[in-house]
Amino acid sequence: MSEESSESVESIETSEPSETSAVINLVQQEHPAAILSTHRHRSDETLVLKREFIQPICRLLRDHPDCQFEMFVDLTAVDYLLVETNLQQTERFEVVYHLRSLSKDHRIRLKCPVPENDCQIPSIHLLWHAVNWYERECYDMYGIHFEGHPNLNRILMYEQFQGHPLRKDYPMDKQQPLLELNDVEERYHYGRFE
């Protein structure tokens, strides 16, 4: 396992050591300072980027004739609060993007670490329209601000809800009811994890 430095790129290729991906090479040429690491396993490619570069790299991936990732698939976030630190993960959150090319038939995954105290990342809603609601969901569930988003409000939870429920420090069972609830006798307590 080679040590990771900010200038050199650590690349882990598990099954085809002689082949390198054309897409990863292209991104390394255009934005050498942006990539933190890459890895691939049987054409399942991942790029870990710095969050400031997400907009130009996504534009490159969408528009460049070698990439042509015209389809946006998914946007979500991961909370590493309770994870042991041997994953080389330094920041608390990581925003994950999945892109797909229908014409070239390949996929790519982009990951951007986001620190807890400065919880924001540029929005890519201008590149694909679908990103709008995915970023709203990510904000609602994790509290990550997307700079440049036109309408960053809660989309799944109601406005009176306080907190971000998919963070690891939000208690899973904690309910915030909108109405006063009657008392109901509960006889069985299956699966209560505290």
């Binding site: 429920p165 939000y170 899973m172 069972d173 904690k174 309910q175 609830l181 109901v184």
Partner: peptide
């Protein structure tokens, strides 16, 4: 049994 579902 989570943050969003009314328990009955």
């Amino acid at each position: 049994q989570n943050y969003s579902v009314l328990q009955g």
